[in-house]
């Protein structure tokens, strides 16, 4: 017997709605659960003192420093490369076989799992270039990992700059490069910053690529050639080796708050950027 369309409609909406509510509920539960277990353990001392006894006691300050330094280093390397690529693709060339290859390469790079970045960073930077486990090896590896994000967001931001802006600049006698520097990039800036924030967010949460390239030394780095431990790696070691669940939850809470704050800033920026463009 056929079920009348009226009932399939009700049935479908109920099932789809339940699936959606379930999905959102699970994701929200994860955040609430970690925060409720972790927030009580966070205080001034936890954030700004050194860990004691492998992390069983004390704070997370060195890992906080690592979590700030490593993504910054990655962005410092990836930003000029990514924005340069985006400028070349949008301002200096037409769609050709070559740009197709460049785009395909970017898309493929985006799909590579982080453990393979870790393997590569280890064998290339750490072993072959003899840099050892250090901030620089980790930064270079993460830079390659976030490069596709930066290229894509920058490209979209640059494309969104109206052509009339460029035409006015050219008509005033500016060259292409001057137009890029003084007209295109300033107008695309919010979009580019969005990409940077997303890249930072991804770097903060990354573990597999970092642990094999930046190492996991639990002390303050004195130079770019010192090993660092990020919060993600610290949390992984605390949880995996069962060192301290209490400290693990607190670290996870700080980690989640940082990543969400960075991503939220990125989305806020993107939203304002889109709103401004569509006006």
């Amino acid at each position: 017997m056929r079920i009348p369309p009226k009932y399939t409609q009700i049935l479908a909406v109920t099932i789809l709605g339940a699936a959606t509510v379930f999905t959102v509920a699970v994701l929200v539960f994860i955040i609430v659960f970690v925060l409720s277990k972790g927030l009580p353990g966070i205080n001034w001392e936890f954030l700004f003192s050194a860990p004691k006894d492998m992390g069983r006691a004390g704070g997370i300050f060195p890992t906080l420093v690592g979590t700030v330094l490593l993504p910054l280093m990655a962005i410092a390397i990836a930003l000029p490369l990514g924005v340069g690529t985006a400028v070349y693709l949008t301002e200096y060339t037409r769609e050709t076989r070559l740009t197709q290859v460049l785009r395909f390469g970017t898309d493929c790079l985006a799909g590579i799992p982080s453990i393979l970045f870790g393997l590569f960073g280890f064998i290339f930077f750490v072993v072959m270039l003899k840099m050892g486990w250090c901030l620089l090896s980790g930064g270079l590896t993460l830079a390659i990992m976030v490069l596709p994000t930066i290229i894509r967001t920058s490209e979209e931001a640059i494309r969104a700059v109206p052509n009339s802006y460029r035409e006015v600049s050219f008509s005033l006698g500016a060259t292409r490069w001057e137009t890029v520097l003084k007209v295109v990039l300033p107008n695309a800036l919010p979009g580019i910053v969005t990409g940077v924030m997303l890249g930072i967010g991804r770097s903060i949460g990354e573990t597999a690529a970092v642990i094999f390239t930046a190492g996991s030394a639990l002390r303050m780095p004195a130079s770019a050639f010192d090993s660092v431990r990020t919060m993600s790696v610290h949390f992984y070691i605390l949880a995996r080796e069962g060192i301290s669940n209490e400290k693990a939850y607190a670290t996870a809470a700080v980690l989640i708050i940082s990543v969400l704050a960075v991503n939220l800033a990125a989305y806020g920026m993107m939203h304002r950027f889109i709103a401004k463009r569509s006006r």
């Binding site: 994701l27 967010g201 991804r202 949390f235 996870a252 989640i256």
Partner: peptide, 21 residues
């Protein structure tokens, strides 16, 4: 809802693993 879900894509994988455990 869509941005909220996309925001949650940023939860580090180690946190998911820990909750699994």
């Amino acid at each position: 809802i869509k941005p909220t879900i996309e925001l949650l894509a940023g939860i580090p994988s180690v946190v998911f693993g820990f909750l699994g455990v």
